[in-house]
Design a protein around this nucleic acid. Sequence first.
DNA 1: TAGATTGTTAATCGATTAACAATC
DNA 2: TAGATTGTTAATCGATTAACAATC
Lengths: 210, 210
Amino acid sequence: MQSATGVSQATLDRLPAYLRYLQAEKGKGVKDISSSVIAEAMQLSAVAVRKDLSLVSSRPGKPRIGFSLETLISDIECFLGYRKRTNVVIMGAGNLGRAILRYEGFEQYGLNVIAAFDVSAEKIGSVWGKPIYPVNRFDEIVRRENVKIGILSVPRSAAQEACDRMIEAGIRAIYSLAPVHLDVPEGVHIKYEDLATSLAALCSELTASE
Amino acid sequence: MQSATGVSQATLDRLPAYLRYLQAEKGKGVKDISSSVIAEAMQLSAVAVRKDLSLVSSRPGKPRIGFSLETLISDIECFLGYRKRTNVVIMGAGNLGRAILRYEGFEQYGLNVIAAFDVSAEKIGSVWGKPIYPVNRFDEIVRRENVKIGILSVPRSAAQEACDRMIEAGIRAIYSLAPVHLDVPEGVHIKYEDLATSLAALCSELTASE
DNA sequence: TAGATTGTTAATCGATTAACAATC
DNA sequence: TAGATTGTTAATCGATTAACAATC
């Protein structure tokens, strides 16, 4: 699925990496940066960097100077939608779910985690000011707040059922941390985030390089 | 970086997704499966599926029958290195670090999390039988166990220092859950896993599709 | 001016798709 | 046999890279 803007998926995948790097440079007090410096640091070609940036930058880079770091950061953030607030909920308040509920870095990306839900009565309460509700209130709250995006972090055995329940309540995109395939109706977006798989991929990359 | 096997990165990225899907089908009692069924379920083309599978499958698919699910699962697992045991350590035993330490799904991918490390004295101890050591024992234990891969889950402000320390101790690949750019020497593999960024990407995908 | 850097146009490269013969 | 499915070869498509004119 490609965004209507004509920006390729490959570029879309690189934009957060630019942002991460540019923010680090900003922290060092850098004001302007050239495509070749970015390319060197990120192991890309300078032309690729310019092409990517030209797609999202509100102002062209200046010959002999490069790009304004501040403008670039702002442009990428806008482009990626980080300036727009979006409410999300968490299904499952186990270890991982609660760790996410506690995590404060979401705001920087425009994400507002409003609550978590769990079947277990002993999990009900709150974590750092964020409420954990019983799962039977999921539908009510999600509909009331008009939430369209949910994080799924329940045990693998409960994943499909929880997923169905989320979709039932109007969730249109699921970010699943459960390492199992989920059947979802057409039109519902699903993204699997499997830490173990990603880590294993890094392992075999390391093995292959030696 | 492409593996020496001549399998493209695109294919490498799809293999874990095949595995996830095939395991779900296996759970339903399916014995054989055709490329077109896989393609349909995973929103790919049947030819692409056959091309991917032909690269890793030890036995060709049979006309009119398809592929043996069991053989396929086994072949993909072998190819991705899940049958090979690899030791990993965790730097940082905060909420996320401890959640990972507790997580039991790593073994399925050949990953053996041997310990976590933390600067905070109150974190020292163990979680579900896995030890949490003070960070000053990092070097000693990592060298003794010859660990080459580490998970970084410390606060953003401590990330670069912790990263340096890991590399110092002989770690060659870092899976970073800290959402900051890290400077690493050439030859050290780094993979950023930023849950907030991935979730934000899903949000904008959803927005773009509506 | 000379030189560093930009953005663009054309060439290359690699991945996906289409077409089709082979097989059970 | 007929039909479903495979694997392969050729064509298409898209992304990356190379070459270069424009600019401060």
